[in-house]
Design a protein around this nucleic acid. Structure first.
Lengths: 283, 283
DNA sequence: ACAAAGCGTTCTGCTCTACCGAACAATATG
DNA sequence: CATATTGTTCGGTAGAGCAGAACGCTTTGT
């Protein structure tokens, strides 16, 4: 009838509609309550008829992606996803290897430490070790975090060329998360220069009110950035004089990851971009 | 090639073909090498044309289930699966809560301990804690294990009615894994009676040569079996006189899980089965 | 207690989409 | 340089996926 349907469907070229719907279904269940969602809710959220949602859900259930009727007739995520997630983590070069390293860092800093890989410039955390007696942060794994408002993200950005920074940030958007979030490119570039000279990145309540993070990048054998290590804590618990001490500890941990990967340490790496600067005219 | 196509497609009622193919695609990538598979291999393994495989792979990639072109033009599992696996584990009632309990058990027994949930009678391990200096077993998480040849499986079976045991084993098949595997129902029933009187199950090289496991079931608030705790070790390291001691330690750990869930301990639970009863209770 | 609304499930037919195959470009291999 | 594979593009067509209505069943309201 009318021309403008919102149509929250994700459709690039070569997209299979039913598969896309099925994946959205999984996302819906994942974002739903822990005790699952009934079929009607799925259909509603998907914007399809019940019969369609049923077919999709049944198919996914047959593959263990969903699970039906554990607490009543509700769909929850299936155990097959645990398996796939485990394998996916194993396929990444890091993860298991770096766990002890994170444990060590958590013990030392008494904070929650995490390891992120670089996914097209975005940090994706794949491992987490909570500190002794530390507050448990709700930090989901496997999710893309924002590059400009997280310590890991900024640590990664700081290793890239101005052009790459522009591209990644253009894709992600400099969304304000708190009143401290850096929202313009020039300020961000300034901040990244500071990150480079310090050897670590500081997220000072830029992503969440009252929370700070320290992050440092690590590199693969080809010298390109592979990810970042970060620690997270409550701002109130952090005396200013400890920032550098903790930051250096994070940097050392990141350098040890680089070592495992056969990459250069933060201090030794030569920036591709640096002084001369190619096309970083202000946009 | 004439009439009987093998057609390894999974097709129950209400199955969406393209979604089923997409899921098989994910499985193929998961079972493939860690550095991924090229598109042609995917098409070959799927039994479809390249263009179809491309559409499916592109769609999955858009949702983070697959990842394209990290080491060359190859598909690997995506980081979205790590996220979903993490959430799936969180949706399960256990997991995080029981981790310290497993750690304790690993410290005590010096063995790898694991926690399985009961998935339609099958044990599915969702958490693993390696013992101090113990051998790292290749024990994938989220995968259905065999009920009759694993300690966790037998611990679970031992809590069920004879009818249920028959059904689960009929579905799983009493496949021989080693020369010690129990392959007939009567012997298995005998063994399960022993499990009940001991309070724990012993897998004596029944699933893998040279490996033994000890397992004990735990129960939900409604008294039905919810899963099992187990420890794994090398047969040669196990003096016969320690079997009972370790088994009781496992049983105690399982009982503590039951306690967390508000369920009965192994000793207190009344069996539904026993001579007269036929109980298939309905919800 | 009944009514009413909601749930999950089944079925049929129409529409449109997912699939194949062929042709293309871009690499790897000899 | 030739040859074999790879990834990509594009249409035509068969057939699969989708909506909708109708069916029991359980739950909710009064």
């Amino acid at each position: 009838m009318t021309s403008a349907e919102p149509s929250n469907e994700v459709a690039g070229r070569y997209t299979v509609r039913s598969v896309a719907r099925a994946m959205r279904l999984v996302q819906i269940v994942a974002d739903g309550p822990a005790d699952g969602l009934p079929l009607s809710d799925l259909a509603r959220a998907l914007g399809t008829s019940k019969s369609t949602a049923l077919s999709l859900a049944r198919t996914l259930t047959a593959f263990g992606m969903l699970r039906d009727g554990q607490p009543g007739p509700r769909y929850t995520l299936g155990t097959g996803l645990i398996r796939l997630g485990d394998i996916a983590r194993g396929q990444l070069p890091l993860g298991d290897v770096c766990r002890p390293l994170l444990t060590e860092l958590s013990d030392l800093t008494k904070m929650t430490s995490r390891l992120a890989i670089c996914d097209d410039g975005f940090p994706v955390f794949i491992e987490r070790v909570d500190g002794p007696g530390s507050v448990r942060f709700h930090t989901p794994l496997g999710q893309r975090e924002l590059p400009h408002s997280s310590a890991a993200g900024k640590a990664i950005l700081a290793t890239m060329t101005g052009e790459q920074v522009r591209e990644v940030c253009g894709q992600a958007g400099l969304t304000p998360r708190t009143s401290h979030t850096i929202t313009d490119l020039d300020s961000l570039r300034e901040n990244l220069a500071l990150v480079r000279s310090n050897g670590f990145a500081l997220d000072d309540e830029e992503d969440a009110e009252g929370i700070f993070c320290l992050g440092a990048a690590f590199f693969g054998h080809d010298g390109t950035v592979a990810g970042a290590v970060s620690v997270t804590g409550i701002k109130g618990d952090l005396p200013a004089w400890r920032v550098n001490e903790l930051g250096q500890a994070v940097r050392r941990a990141a350098d040890r990851v680089s070592e495992i990967l056969g990459g250069p340490r933060n201090a030794d790496r030569v920036m591709a971009d640096q002084p001369g600067m190619s096309g970083t005219s202000r946009a």
